[in-house]
Amino acid sequence: MRSLERHRDVGAYTLGVLDEADAFRFEDHLTRCPLCALRLSELGSATRQLTLYRRATPGPVHPFAVPGPRLLDHLLAVLAAHRRAGRRRLLYGVAAAALVGAGTLSGAALLTGGGDPAVRLDATDERSGVRARVTAAGEPWGSTVELEVRDGAGPRVCRLVAVGRDGTEQTVTSWRVAGHDARSTTVHGGAALRPDQIARYEVRTAAGERLVTLRAR
């Protein structure tokens, strides 16, 4: 395959649809092509969005459901925010290095370009006996969420729902409680709401029964 065609493989490689031989050849090309390395980095944000969509989409939804007309605009906005965040991190790093070189960093707070500090919430529902801990971190596109939950009343399917301060609801992730097992389960997901836009998280059964509520402070 010609080098020009290799450039076109970056999208397929990012999505993991190249066969083993083509993936090996593209990785070899990637070590010598800074342009493809840059494109691979830029496509990472869109790939994460597709992964979150797959995790958050209920099983009955067809994987090739027609997207809404604003999906492309949303993905482009996410990509632009990712690029802006990368530029801010670079500028903060340069500024910090300059301060160190001048010897003026004594006692000063170092600026970092990361997102908002992680939010951690804990709650136990005495009625259901379910205990949960949510850790949410801000991202340019919303929040990444980790849930640790202890539920000994399976088997059942549960989901984590983020309820916005405006009353909107988004399913963050879902999982199956295998049986009467009191061990903790950890699952991950994401929401388009930022942590400060979320009023509470609710662990619910697939039938809608509320098992435990974690309220933002």
Rank of each mutant, 00 (worst) to 15 (best):
V177M: 08
C158W: 03
L193R: 09
V149W: 05
Q197R: 15
R165A: 10
T186F: 11
S128M: 12
R204I: 04
R87W: 12
D166L: 12
G113S: 03
Q170N: 12
V145K: 04
V187F: 06
T205V: 10
L99C: 01
R150C: 07
Y92M: 10
G190E: 00
T186K: 14
L121F: 12
Y201T: 01
E146R: 15
A191S: 15
R156S: 00
E202I: 10
A132D: 01
L105K: 03
H180S: 10
A136V: 05
G103S: 01
Q170V: 14
V187G: 00
Q170H: 14
G154C: 08
S128F: 05
V161T: 12
P155F: 11
L99E: 02
V157H: 09
G189F: 07
R127P: 00
V157T: 14
S184G: 11
V161F: 12
I198C: 03
G164D: 03
V177H: 06
W175A: 03
H180F: 14
D125C: 14
R200D: 03
R127I: 10
A136M: 15
S184W: 14
G208I: 10
A153G: 04
R183T: 12
T173N: 04
L91H: 13
R183I: 07
G113R: 13
E139P: 01
E169M: 13
L91Q: 14
A118S: 05
L160W: 05
V119K: 05
T124Q: 13
G142D: 01
T112D: 04
V145I: 15
E146V: 09
V203R: 02
A137L: 07
R159H: 11
D116W: 15
R204Y: 03
A162H: 07
V100D: 03
T124G: 06
L110N: 01
D125H: 11
T173W: 08
A97C: 08
T205M: 09
L160M: 11
A137M: 04
G115R: 06
C158I: 13
Y201D: 00
A199Q: 11
A96L: 08
S106A: 07
G152H: 07
